[in-house]
Design a binder for these strands. Structure first.
Length: 321
RNA sequence: GGCGGGAUAGCUCAGUAGGUAGAGCAACGGACUGAAAAUCCGUGUGUCCCCAGUUCAAUUCUGGGUCCCGCCA
């Protein structure tokens, strides 16, 4: 049976590109709504990545409860599926306390995962993935891709031959389960989303956003970012860990090892962050329903009034049919 | 002042044995099923520094000019 009349839990989410001002706005909104925050950020889940991920301070986290920050060590591989299940738990707990769950963050794929894009029960297996990585080094990506073509032509058609990550993932599914990924996608239910999410989108003109990005990265660099990376490496965390593969961390690893200058690391981080903000927008543009607020046109306080009323209306539909 | 090297895409540069040009980076658009700050795909008209000459044809050859960078004074 389809679930047309199952009540979905209303949730508010603040989306927008990096450095647009989500955090500042959201904290204010959280105070107004008496909300608890769920961070939707694939880097803030890691402990010890503080400066580079712009985590809010412990003091503020004490004032406004934050979920899904510091829930994994840097040498773990935290996945979108982990996020979906932990975020679901967190929302449930917040509701039980009769408070409002407010999602904040700029990782579009995590919203997608929570919204039910992922198929249920698809496995992952680090040891299989490790073998695949070795094979890619030995036999080359082209060979792996033609292997995929043989076992899962539909997937090979969709995945570009130059894309190692997706090629390996599709083969990983096939090797673990003995069935092609495509079969799973066609025959398995998507994770059901029990949430009705209202997206509040913050945006500003590209050139202004870029100015903010540059300013923020410079600030991070002078507030201990290089030292943070140096410390992580000294703890023995490998630079090849997913947690350290993001922009900034990537560049600073090279700087700490003496492979590039401070300026090069700084400029590289700014460039990658700008590119990231564009990639975020190619997702967010399609998020529905989204109320967009252009921060070049609105004062934050003006926007707040409007956002608050929309949020309250959205939250009130709970319990109604 | 002398000698040499350079001037081509927003930047760094390649190139045309004379037929008006292309890489990397940037910029812009897109994809995305457990690594997603990852991974991948697509988009290249620009007075080829200026003026004159040779030529059917000059960004390319010749002469002059301007600017830049070295080295020598």
């Amino acid at each position: 049976m389809k679930n047309g009349h199952v009540k979905k839990t209303p949730v508010i989410a603040i989306i927008g590109p990096t450095a647009v001002g989500k955090t500042k706005f959201s904290l204010e909104l959280a105070r107004n709504l008496n909300a608890e925050v769920i961070s939707v950020d694939s880097r803030q889940v890691y402990r010890y990545l503080d400066v580079g991920t712009d985590k809010v301070s412990p003091e503020i986290r004490h004032e406004i409860l934050h979920h899904l920050i510091n829930v994994a060590d840097p040498d773990q591989v935290y996945s979108a599926a982990d996020f979906a299940s932990q975020a679901t738990d967190a929302i449930d707990r917040i509701k039980k306390r009769n408070r409002v769950p407010l999602m904040i963050g700029g990782t579009p794929f995590y919203y997608k995962a929570l919204g039910g894009t992922l198929s249920e029960d698809l496995p992952k297996d680090p040891s299989v993935r490790k073998i695949l990585e070795e094979e890619i080094n030995k036999r080359g990506l082209a060979e792996l891709h033609s292997e995929l073509r043989a076992v899962d032509p539909a997937a090979a058609e969709k995945i570009h031959p130059n894309d190692p990550v997706r090629t390996m993932r599709a083969l990983e599914i096939y090797r673990i389960t003995g069935r092609p990924a495509t079969w799973w996608y066609e025959n398995q239910a998507k994770m059901e989303s029990p949430f009705d999410i209202l997206y509040i989108g913050l945006i500003r003109e590209r050139s202004n956003l870029y100015k903010n990005i540059a300013a923020r990265v410079r600030e991070q660099f002078s507030n201990g970012y290089p030292e943070e990376v140096e410390w992580l490496l000294a703890q023995g965390y490998s630079p090849s860990l997913p947690a350290l593969q993001g922009f900034g961390y990537r560049e600073l690893v090279r700087y700490v090892k003496g492979c590039c200058s401070y300026e090069e690391a700084l400029e590289g981080d700014i460039r990658s962050t700008k590119a990231f903000s564009r990639r975020q927008m190619t997702w967010f543009k399609h998020f529905e329903p989204t109320l967009w607020y252009d921060f070049d046109k609105y004062e934050m306080s003006e926007a707040m009034e409007s956002v608050l009323s929309h949020c309250i209306r959205h939250l009130e539909q709970e319990g109604k049919e």
